[in-house]
Design a protein around this nucleic acid. Sequence first.
DNA 1: ACTCTGAGTCAAGACGGC
DNA 2: CTAATTGACTCAGAGT
DNA 3: GCCGTCC
Length: 421
Amino acid sequence: MGIKGLAKLLSDEAPDCIREVELKSLHGRKIAIDASMAIYQFLIAVRSGGPNQQATMLTNAEGETTSHIQGMFNRTIRYMTEGIRPVFVFDGKPPDVKSHELIKRREKREKAQAALAVASEEGNVEEQDKQSKRLVRAGTKENEDCRKLLTLMGVPVVTAPCEAEAQAAALCKAGLVYATGTEDMDALTFATPILVRKLTFANASKSMVQTMNYNKVIEGLAISHDQFVDLCIMLGCDYCDTIRGVGPKTALKLIREHGNIEKVIETIDRKKFVVPESWVPNEKKLDAQSDDDDEEGVESPSKEENNGIVDTEELIPAYVQARKLFNEHEVLNDIELKWKPCQAEDLQKFLVDDMGFNVDRVKNNIEKLQAAYKANSKPQTRMDSFFAVKANPNAAKSAAKRKADAAKAKAAVSKKKTKKH
DNA sequence: ACTCTGAGTCAAGACGGC
DNA sequence: CTAATTGACTCAGAGT
DNA sequence: GCCGTCC
């Protein structure tokens, strides 16, 4: 779910953090990309069969889906051709806190499955199509396929211990890549210095992309990093519920006024704004002892499950856990990213023999890939780096700020290192 | 009248020949 | 031993 | 630019 409404909030309240730039301006850059998200989109979008007939995924002779391979292969070659060196980051295990959210998704999925069955019976092709898209998921098989493909292409692959966005942000903070390429606004909460959106080629003619600058987010909103994380939690993230009645506008106002979630909870009128129980687990315990004005019938069963975990040892409020996930997310620290020449022979075998791709097309694409690799591995001299300092009128000011931020980032990293086990 | 929230729904790639 | 997205848009309704 | 095709 990312962070609900963050993109819009930023464009309203901190417009300077967003820039529309030409794709060209990313020439020579390394960019970390969330692989699972890309795969998911390919599985949904790359289909054959026009209107009025059941859309179907592309498949090889064995009937295995190849849509994601097709998409990933083309897009990666396109990146390389544009002078962008991608590194694909795969998801690891989702954090425990997310399981509540995942249960909800599974229920939705089961609903879609039922709806699909009905639609099939009625022969309603349009409805079948819609429901089948809701059932799409990027599973282990698809992830493995893409890992193999990318490795054969000589493109680095990183498997995150946990969430891909957090790992991508870490790569960016460490200076191993220029930016995180994603549509998921979570990456900003993980404090990726640069986020690139719309990094797709749907509009090949215009080829504009959008960048978001983390420092400018902080500057524009006029809050600290910790406050920004609290703001994101209040907007709504995957890790916990939100305060009912508080949306983007109010959340920003409250954080600016009170500084953090603890103070917000203390201050606001809790009759008007209902704070989730999981945010105040200690209070809940007291309530249960003294008197309960709760209606028992209305209590949802999912909440009970949640308490099962919380009651035993954790009296840690859910938003504190969420904070921790954003600030100390488990990531790999010492990574080397290497772009190698593709293994042309094996790559061709994989695509043609295993996946049923057209030989000529594959050969042609491999040549493109090799040419792009060669061009990219020449010593890089980004033209703009020569006069970047002069171009910025606030150079001194922002340089000082960068320094301060770098120091902060460093502190955060070393903290992480002590935590890792 | 205006502002805001929240629930629901939708759509989602890339190439090449013309 | 399974599963694993997300943002944009619209519209109704509540609160101010 | 639109539209069929990729597998």
